[in-house]
Design a binder for these strands. Structure first.
Lengths: 209, 209
DNA sequence: TGAGTGTTGATATTCAATTCACAATATAAG
DNA sequence: CTTATATTGTGAATTGAATATCAACACTCA
């Protein structure tokens, strides 16, 4: 039996793998069965070398004449980035952004789904909002433990960010996607992805100057 | 008269400068006037060296005893990343995400504002949506030229992405913030920032495995 | 058959970003 | 005055990511 060696992939490569897969799904729907590195590169706005390098890192080999077999490649990417049994995600902060993300995401990935939301607004709690049940934030800990949730999306107000993050960490969350404008600090071993719209726009504004 | 030397700053530094400034605003409100690199680093979840290096790059000097003067630092960052007269931004695609971003962003920055939105849904066009006027996408080109818009936020459906991007480029847009799940290619000299929620979540899912 | 073309896979190189290590300096305390 | 401590500023080293280069291979066509 092959031992499940854990691949230590660069973060950027993982992001690209996720995107390769999405594009490859489309190609499959268009009836394509094989693809060359330069084709995939073009669709992703990358160089062919970059694509080949990524695929080399995950140990996938193509053929000189036919390129890569899309079906196999998709399967391998899935094997690497998906959890076998899927992962449930919660979202905290059912404001505009929270609702947008929830609706946007619903049904996009079968191994990954936002299963429940939390908010402190009693108007919203106890009901279905944007297609998923919304509970009061006081119930986060219980829910996370019971359902073994590992990932949370954070879309609360700046003021609430630190407190909610603490709750999530206390509850045992292992990864946080922080969409607030407040930078977070997390302990060793907890994974954090942050993204801030204002920062992106300010960067663009600087670049076009 | 000092010649306006254009600082070639690393992209990552620009992003951090934007965030330093936001945090420093808060510190000012709390009555703080000076700050040390290690304090700023802690708030940003960075190392002190990183902070000092960034400030070195923009040519700001602190004092060994008092650290950095917040007011001066904020002013300098503004000088570097803001346009003198401010910049107007448009948003294309008034769906859930578009509305969320618009409301979220409104009034956040005085030098930067989303002034108008565009959509192809006639229900929305010609009205005020999420606080800003929403026009039909056929009017993009005229608007961009007349108002000298340089930056656009793209929140349309995957299917529409390429066409709308082409319209924006034709109209003379210089920077695009792409929130769709479709990777874009832009010509030399046009700035592109892409961000995809699904990718972030898949990356997190991989990391917590 | 054999030259020509286009592809992959991999090593080497370059480039960008971060971190290390420490000199220089200011302040406080003895 | 001298020592101890805490800070900044920065050259050098390191790490991480992207790119260049090319051998090996498979197919095509003359």
């Amino acid at each position: 039996m092959a031992k499940n060696t854990y691949l230590e992939l660069p973060g950027k490569t993982i992001e690209r793998l996720s995107q390769y897969r999405r594009i490859l799904y489309n190609s499959i729907h268009e009836g394509k069965t094989n693809i060359y590195s330069h084709e995939l590169a073009k669709m992703m706005n990358l160089t062919p070398v970059q694509v080949r390098r990524d695929l080399m890192l995950i140990g996938y080999s193509g053929s000189q004449s036919k390129g890569y077999v899309i079906k196999d490649l998709v399967a391998l990417i899935g094997k690497i980035i998906d959890s076998e049994k899927g992962q449930d995600i919660i979202l905290v902060g059912m404001g505009n952004l929270g609702r947008a993300i929830t609706s946007y995401f619903s049904g996009k990935r079968d191994k990954l789904s936002i299963v429940s939301a939390f908010d402190n607004d009693l108007q919203k709690t106890g009901r279905i909002v944007a297609g998923i049940p919304c509970h009061h934030i006081s119930q986060i800990k219980e829910f996370v433990k019971k359902e073994n949730i590992q990932i949370a999306v954070l879309t609360v107000s700046p003021e609430a960010t630190h407190d909610v993050a603490k709750m999530l960490l206390d509850a045992g969350i292992r990864g946080i996607l922080n969409y607030t404008s407040v930078p977070l600090t997390v302990p060793e071993g907890i994974h954090l992805e942050e993204y801030d719209i204002v920062t992106s726009l300010e960067k663009l504004a600087y670049l076009v100057k």
